[in-house]
Simulated assay, not measured.
Amino acid sequence: MSVALESSAALREHAGPAWDALLTHEFPVRLAAATLPEESFRFYVAQNLLYLPEYARVIAFAAARSADGAGLGEHTESLVNIVSTEIPQNRRLLEAISAIAPEPTPGEDVKAPATVAYTSWLLSIAATGSTLDIAAAILPCAWSYGDIAEGLVRDAADHPVYTEWLGFFASADYRAVVDRQRAAFDAELAEQDDAGRARLADIFLMGCRLEKSFWGQGLAMQHWDDVAG
């Protein structure tokens, strides 16, 4: 049965198993259970700190290309959230997890394969696509993090670092950021023809796939052969 691609909710339904795999991925599930190895979380956060500046640059592309003040304001707020809130929060997490897992993982300052794939794809969308293409590309990351954390936080085990991660992404403030992004995206999506909506659905789906790859990379601590040694 085909899905009418008229909203972000419809794009999520269209993504199907690729979206569902994010909500049940072993990395966040084990994080919530406090059974995730601290070394894996340290690796993930270090890679996230290489990912997030590129993610912010992609949002900056969208802000620069905005056709009106509303779009400029929306993308600027998203950019400020990444630069002023999420990047500093990840730095705090890395410092906190480093106190528990003090041994640096090999190549912490080098983008690992999934990080390269994800950031390169995002930047290619920013270079060649529209502001709405960019919004479709970045939405799976922001949206899935909130849904993952909200689904796990209630029954989560206490942990000196993982609890903070869950609390941040399960917060009302974070949900407001995602809701604002979705509302702006849905308003523009409604103006697209069928071909445009199908293109955006494909972009959203690829974003889900790359999110899953990034989680898997963190769990396996997967790096380049010459870096991992």
Score class of each variant (00 low, 15 high):
residue 7 S to L: 02
residue 12 R to S: 09
residue 14 H to C: 13
residue 15 A to N: 05
residue 15 A to R: 07
residue 15 A to C: 06
residue 17 P to G: 07
residue 26 E to A: 14
residue 32 A to D: 02
residue 36 L to R: 07
residue 37 P to D: 10
residue 37 P to G: 09
residue 40 S to H: 05
residue 44 Y to E: 11
residue 54 E to V: 14
residue 61 F to Q: 10
residue 61 F to Y: 14
residue 64 A to F: 00
residue 68 D to M: 04
residue 69 G to S: 10
residue 70 A to M: 04
residue 75 H to D: 09
residue 77 E to S: 12
residue 79 L to A: 01
residue 80 V to A: 07
residue 81 N to G: 00
residue 84 S to G: 07
residue 85 T to C: 00
residue 88 P to Y: 00
residue 94 L to W: 11
residue 95 E to G: 05
residue 97 I to C: 02
residue 105 T to L: 12
residue 106 P to H: 02
residue 111 K to A: 12
residue 112 A to I: 04
residue 116 V to F: 00
residue 120 S to F: 09
residue 121 W to A: 03
residue 124 S to E: 15
residue 124 S to P: 01
residue 133 D to P: 07
residue 134 I to H: 11
residue 138 I to K: 06
residue 140 P to M: 06
residue 143 W to L: 14
residue 146 G to S: 00
residue 148 I to E: 04
residue 156 A to R: 10
residue 156 A to E: 11
residue 159 H to R: 10
residue 163 T to K: 10
residue 167 G to W: 05
residue 170 A to V: 04
residue 176 A to E: 15
residue 178 V to Q: 08
residue 185 F to A: 08
residue 191 E to T: 15
residue 191 E to I: 08
residue 198 A to R: 13
residue 199 R to G: 01
residue 200 L to H: 10
residue 217 Q to A: 05
residue 229 G to T: 09
